[in-house]
Write a protein that binds this DNA or RNA. Structure first.
Length: 552
DNA sequence: GCCGTTTTCGGCCCGACTGTTTTCAGTCG
């Protein structure tokens, strides 16, 4: 089955080359639009493709269909091939650089013969970019900074991507007879938000038959590095008895700083497993996720292990539906929520300023209210009316206070104007937090892991404001976000904040992201009592009521 | 290239920002 992502990329690539060649802008747009539509279709696209029913999808006409079907069949596109005649394919990667569009790329190509990222970097370092007409020193420096960032990012992958790879390796390991036991270790076992290498510890009884299963890239003592096509290294620590298995797993799990601050002496490490290892230095067992240096910045009373897991989640909050930019209907989202064991929900589609996401104006909110009343009754499952309201540049929300009274649950999030100064952004968000109708601050720092830095903001002040105004802080579980960052969770917990763990789901499949948010919350040591999603229906109603009381 | 129609052509989103200019082009969302 052809990868959906490859097809999306293909259409973008065709659009880029067409633009580079100065073709009809509407034609270009048709390809980009098609790619966006496919992305939004998610896994439904696979069905349309398989059944050759793409013609039924609005926006995918005859031209795009033939490109897609050809690629699905042959793994290549004659359309792109003929466009790329006389142009090296590496030119395409230039389009992914922020700040470079078709016009600038054309100048680079025509005047300096630049056809790849490598050549671009070289030209920047030789100061040849700054001299081009339409460019300048600032642009050159921006490009260089962007290229540096890329090099750094390329060393990591997102947690969900690493999780997927790890699962593949686990499937493989469990088929090998000589393997008695295995576990993820290091970054993955500690649940880092981005992962630079995938590591396992295995317990085996026959080394030879085990190693035969892999193509070995390198070997160091008891550790093998495996040859793979993955972007990051994969390695396995091999142990042959239970004692060294337990010790190796323990040593490779905690961060170096954690282990040394705890005062472990590995030569004298005593006991049969992790619980006993901790006991031997008079420390309570610490769950793997929390074995980080930052652990020691927690107040003693907060150093308890997290007691959270998916089964504690009662309320599904902050998700999107086809009312705004979600891919699935409210009804199918609720069906999935029930299936996953949630007891109630609050739908939070985008607000009216979010025109890019088909945000809801007042009228449509009231329309949605009717639908969810109906669903609540039909499915015997309470669905609250929520909204993810844009925080406008001046810090006000998207609706009048008078109208906000109609909405049960208000998530306030920044979606635009990321470039304010730190002080303006901080003021803006604090004002939104102080709004008497705000219940939750959504993805508080706006970062997109391995792609966009958080906006400039004084996170401490934001957290203080949330604590002072009884506004929960989101742990956005989308693996691209994982925002609030776990390092700030410690500070927020010390301040007594409440949290909300949300997939920010735009489809039923996204709901499973919740697990990553829970892992990150566990990393912060968060207890069920600190999470509003863990409230029972009645407790949640009480939580919402606090607002009605302060708005009397 | 796609869509929709007074059905085979004509219209398709644009405002904000940035860095370059010398009044604006290019890029982004």
């Amino acid at each position: 089955m052809t990868n959906r992502k490859e097809i999306i990329n293909l259409l973008y690539n065709i659009a880029d080359v067409l633009e580079f060649k100065g073709e009809n802008p509407f034609k270009i747009n048709a390809f980009r639009n098609g790619a966006n539509i496919i992305r939004q279709l998610g896994d439904k696209f696979d069905i349309y493709l398989k059944e050759k029913r793409l013609g039924e999808v609005k926006g995918i006409g005859k031209g795009l269909q033939s490109v897609i079907y050809e690629y699905a069949e042959k793994g290549e596109s004659s359309e792109l091939k003929s466009l790329l005649e006389n142009i090296p394919e590496s030119l395409l990667e230039l389009f992914t650089i922020h700040g470079l569009g078709p016009k600038k790329i054309k100048v680079l190509y025509d005047q300096l013969g630049i056809t790849s990222i490598g050549e671009l970097e070289y030209a920047c370092k030789e100061n040849r970019i700054a001299l081009l007409k339409g460019f300048g020193k600032t642009t050159q420096e921006k490009i260089l900074a962007e290229l540096e960032k890329r090099k750094y990012f390329s060393k990591y992958i997102l947690l969900n991507q690493a999780d997927k790879i790890a699962k593949e390796i686990e499937a493989e390991l469990s088929t090998i007879k000589s393997v008695k036991k295995f576990s993820r270790t290091n970054e993955l076992r500690r649940i880092r938000e981005i992962i630079s290498q995938i590591e396992f510890v295995v317990l085996i009884d026959k080394e030879k038959t085990f190693i035969e299963h892999f193509e070995i890239a390198d070997k160091k003592e008891n550790r093998i590095f495996i040859k793979t096509n993955y972007q990051i290294p994969v390695s396995i620590y091999i142990t042959k008895d239970v004692e060294s298995y337990e010790k190796t797993l323990f040593k490779t799990t905690g961060s170096e700083e954690f282990l040394s601050k705890s005062g472990f002496d590995f030569i004298k490490l005593k006991g049969k497993g992790e619980t006993e290892f901790f006991k031997s230095i008079k420390m309570e067992f610490v769950i793997p996720e929390m074995r980080e240096e930052e652990y020691f910045s927690l107040k003693e009373k907060n150093r308890k292990n997290s007691d959270l897991d998916f089964s504690n989640m009662q309320g599904l909050l902050h998700f999107h539906t086809t009312f705004s930019d979600g891919r699935d209907t409210l009804e199918s989202m609720i069906n999935k929520a029930k299936e996953l064991g949630f007891n109630y929900a609050a739908v939070c589609d985008h607000s009216k300023s979010a025109f890019y996401a088909n945000g809801l104006n007042e009228e449509r909110i009231l329309e949605q209210k009717k639908v969810l009343k109906q669903i609540t009754a039909e499915k015997n499952f309470v669905v609250f009316q929520g909204i993810e309201s844009d925080i406008l540049t001046d810090g006000s929300l998207d609706y009048s206070n008078d109208f906000l009274k109609n909405i049960d649950f208000v998530v306030a999030s920044v979606h635009s104007q990321f470039n304010l100064t730190e002080s303006d952004m901080t003021k803006r968000i604090i004002k939104a937090v102080e709004n008497p109708f705000t219940d939750l601050l959504g993805h508080p720092t706006g970062r997109l892991l391995l792609s966009r830095d958080s906006y400039k903001v004084d996170v401490k002040k934001i957290i203080d404001a949330c604590a002072a105004n009884d506004v929960a802080i989101e742990i956005n579980s989308n693996p691209r976000r994982l925002d609030l960052d776990w390092r700030w969770i410690y500070y927020a917990r010390n301040k007594g904040c409440k949290f909300s763990i949300n997939a920010d789901a735009h489809s039923t499949e996204d709901l499973l992201y919740t697990n990553y948010g829970i892992s990150i919350a566990r990393k912060g040591g968060i207890q069920q009592t600190e999470v509003i999603n863990c409230l029972s229906l009645n407790e949640f109603k009480k939580f919402l009521k606090r607002k009605a009381e302060r708005n009397l």
